[in-house]
């Protein structure tokens, strides 16, 4: 048993499951956006699309999925390549700094996204 307090769900299984589910949600959302854009959009039609509550909810769902998906994926990358075993203490400092930076970026994206979706 290898514990880690920075992994998303503290459990390998929950991270794995969330990564799959969020991946499916993101795929569905990007296909939806692709279909919406494919026919050509102007301001009015885009506005009408996002005035529907279900589109806002779907978008928020995709945004939260993106944040979770990105965290789990990037956490895996960082814990592979930036480790004490490979780089000594530098690895720990770099890894934790980047983890903080990534979580800050994701937090900003989520809050900003909510503001865009419901703020106008």
């Amino acid at each position: 048993m290898v514990t880690s307090v920075t992994s998303f769900g503290r459990s390998g299984l929950s991270d794995w499951l969330l990564q799959r589910v969020s991946g499916v949600i993101l795929l569905a959302y990007f296909l939806f956006i692709l279909a919406a854009v494919a026919g050509g959009v102007d301001y009015a039609s885009w506005r009408a699309l996002f005035d529907q509550v279900w589109v806002k909810v779907f978008s928020l769902m995709a945004l939260l999925s993106l944040a979770a998906h990105a965290w789990i994926g990037l956490w895996s990358v960082l814990t592979d390549y930036l480790t004490e075993r490979l780089m000594g203490t530098t690895g720990n400092v770099l890894r934790i700094s980047l983890q903080l930076l990534i979580s800050l970026a994701l937090f900003i994206y989520v809050v900003w996204g909510v503001q865009i979706l419901w703020g106008y």
């Binding site: 290898v2 390998g12 814990t79």
Partner: peptide
């Protein structure tokens, strides 16, 4: 129980 962490199996 001993395997359910982010590394042992899920790497």
């Amino acid at each position: 129980s001993r395997l359910d962490d982010p590394f042992s199996v899920f790497r």
